[in-house]
Write a protein that binds this DNA or RNA. Structure first.
Lengths: 111, 111
DNA sequence: CGTTTATATAAACAACCCCTGATAAATGGC
DNA sequence: GCCATTTATCAGGGGTTGTTTATATAAACG
């Protein structure tokens, strides 16, 4: 399954978004997604499985709990594709220069 | 249909790749994709329709020919998502600084 | 041990997407 | 006007994917 297929599903995108904040248990992920999308626990579990098997997420067992974390490599594949075939480097470079400047400033003067 | 759904299909990704080189007629796009994926002309036409209707491509008529061009805005949506939720800014920023420097150098000394 | 909690798996089903083959529409050349 | 070319659309079938309900597994706890 290609990276774009993985992220093609809105539930999986949301899971990745949630995991961007850091490690989360399957339970808390399920609770959020369950209410937001109105789907069952097994449905969420199936999506977590897809993220696992595609390398988008890794799991750590702790008792009965499963702690999920996002993996960056597959996301890189997506951004690489966009960078390669989206021919808008001009604008993109400008935007990223701004972003880099902003990042540096915030590093110098941490909140 | 979300941007990731559009690019979830390998044929559509390939079409965007081909269009990255510049405007192409439906015919030449069809020929390439037809041989690479072994699908029919109507199948390719359907994919071009999806790209059209999702804003990933624009069309210009010239006689019976249709000239397709890639549109950058929807691709931006994808890269924005990755930038926001893929937490690998450290490496990413470094890589892009390099890229920016490279771009500037090549602007100064055009090939 | 028996029960509860946390998570995964299995079976069945529905929806959707993509494909093909046939055909339409519109332009171009003679 | 007639035929060829280019591209799009339509009707229908098939396969993948996501969902639910029910159940399994496995640890924690009394």
């Amino acid at each position: 399954m290609h990276a774009f297929d993985i992220l093609g599903d809105p539930v999986r995108r949301r899971l990745v978004e949630l995991l961007a904040d850091g490690e989360q248990s399957a339970g808390s992920l399920t609770e959020v997604v369950r209410t937001e999308f109105g789907i069952s626990q097994p449905a969420v579990s199936a999506h977590l499985r897809v993220l696992r098997e595609s390398g988008f997420a890794s799991v750590r067992a702790e008792g009965t709990r499963r702690w999920y974390a996002v993996e960056t490599a597959p996301l890189r594949e997506v951004s690489d594709w966009v960078d390669r075939y989206g021919r808008f480097w001009e604008q993109r470079v400008d935007a990223l220069e701004t972003e880099i400047r902003r990042t540096r400033r915030s590093r110098r003067t941490p909140s």
